[in-house]
Design a protein around this nucleic acid. Structure first.
Lengths: 184, 184
DNA sequence: CAGGGTGGCTAACAGCGTTAGCCATAAGTC
DNA sequence: GACTTATGGCTAACGCTGTTAGCCACCCTG
């Protein structure tokens, strides 16, 4: 498990919570310091008494996103030892949780990541279920890449409107399940 | 094939070319209107005599990116009728061409796309090779999602440093090649 | 009751995309 | 050849962004 205490004040926690609401409700371009202050009945410069920068707010949100998705993935694998079933469950959970917080997911995964700012080991912990399911690092990485590609393209509205994404997920799952099953 | 004449003036073409250089050389945050003007020995407002907005510049760049990658993918499939070989070739070409222009690729594929602003049919044409190779729309979409996921995560530096991405690509290719081969 | 930290505030700066309005030069027309 | 118009520069400025400086009121502690 990944330790939680992030060492920020209670007020900072409120700010991050408000930021999350704002981000999910109105999208990334609404997440400005002035707008965020407004949401809390405060002026933008006052935010800097609690958080060092806008980037710090974003990093906190990214942490939240990773913790939640990681927890969901780990939980989804509980008691599933058939690797093919586990693969399908893992993909379904990944899709559902990502699409439930699209703006947060995009923030967490798009663009270059400030690696040093994140809790060490957090990313690896999120990726762990893929390794548990596949039992092999390259297959795990390929499976995660597929899942991320599917999610981010769906979030960004990149598929044609008449796409049957359920079946695309199913096809991808089948492709990987073939290898996952073959390994055991 | 996709028609080329975009109906912009010669000067506009120079601006877009300069924008591309600037983007690839110094990254997305360097692509500002003032910086772009500077590059051409001109003030930022003058750019608006040739292009309607910064977004128009970006759309022009996205068009370029799609045309080039699409042409590369189509060319790569010439004379390849073994679907498994074709799949590997397609993935290799996709990877190579995307990583050769990482900032352009990210601009073209990240975030919500101004669909209406792009040449109609362009996106479909870029995706065509995936359909040619797989012979099935869902498999094509899954394969493209895998390729995009791999590329964008590599561009954004999201893989652990010690990752053996060649092998990850190979593993993904094998997963899909299994289905591609089985269909014929 | 004094001192210091906490958490607000206003004013301001630099940089962003963009618009308005001015002007010199080039091109086309009578 | 003169007149007109279109082209493509320019400066100034607006409203937005993240952020800093400096001020001040409150509250907790000694």
């Amino acid at each position: 498990m990944i330790a939680d205490p992030v060492g920020r004040s209670a007020r900072a926690g409120e700010i991050v919570a408000a930021a999350r609401l704002l981000l999910e409700r109105e999208g990334p371009e609404a997440l400005t310091m002035r707008r965020l202050g407004e949401e809390l009945g405060i002026r933008a410069p006052s935010l800097y008494k609690h958080l060092a920068s806008k980037k710090a707010v974003e990093v906190a949100l990214i942490e939240e996103a990773f913790r939640e998705i990681g927890a969901a993935l780990h939980a989804a694998l509980q008691g599933r030892d058939n690797p093919v079933d586990a693969t399908r469950t893992l993909l379904a959970t990944y899709r559902r949780f990502s699409l439930a917080r699209p703006n947060l997911y995009r923030l967490a995964t798009a663009g270059r990541l400030p690696r040093g700012d994140l809790t060490p080991g957090l990313e690896e912990w999120v990726g762990e279920p893929f390794h548990l399911v596949t039992g092999e690092p390259h297959l795990a990485q390929a499976l995660w890449s597929f899942a991320h590609g599917m999610v981010i393209l769906e979030i960004d509205g990149r598929y044609p409107e008449n796409s049957e994404l359920d079946q695309t997920w199913e096809t991808g799952a089948a492709a990987f399940a073939g290898l996952v099953g073959a390994r055991r």
